[in-house]
Amino acid sequence: MALNIQQLCDWDSDQYCIVHSMPCKINHNGQANVTGFFTPYIENKELNGCSGVSESSFRGYPLQGKKIVIPVGFKGIVVSETKKPLTDVEERNLVVSKKFCEITYWNWDCFPVSDDSINQSMDWLILSKMIHEIE
């Protein structure tokens, strides 16, 4: 069963989605007042001489975060399916609903370092070119 992904939104639009990767499993899919509750308490910190580190809290848990900029040549997208097919064999159609160019990833009570898996995983985008580029 093939799955089609189509782009619908206007890429020239400068509407970028604000993306936070949270260090916990939130058992919910749907609306959430992120800008009302979470965003106002994000603080940028200079810690140990490292700039670009933010601090915040979620449900009282202390979080430290850092921005990951999506490498040049790539972009972040959110792909959505309005309606799931009833059977496994049906072709599925998804659309690109949002785009983003950076992710703020949060650690629970851990200073973000370059060795964090999520940070490191980005270098695959570059390394994979070395493996697969067709001369």
Binding site: C24, K25, I26, N27, H28, A32, N33, G36, F37, F38, Y41, S57, F58, R59, G60, Y61
Partner: peptide
């Protein structure tokens, strides 16, 4: 999702229990 405003101490059993029964589990 967020539970309470930061006025509230999330680490108290009173607030934890209300959140557990009414909020989304995290």
């Amino acid at each position: 999702v967020f539970g309470f405003p930061q006025l509230v101490r999330f680490s108290w059993s009173t607030s934890e229990q209300i959140l557990k029964s009414k909020g989304v589990t995290v």
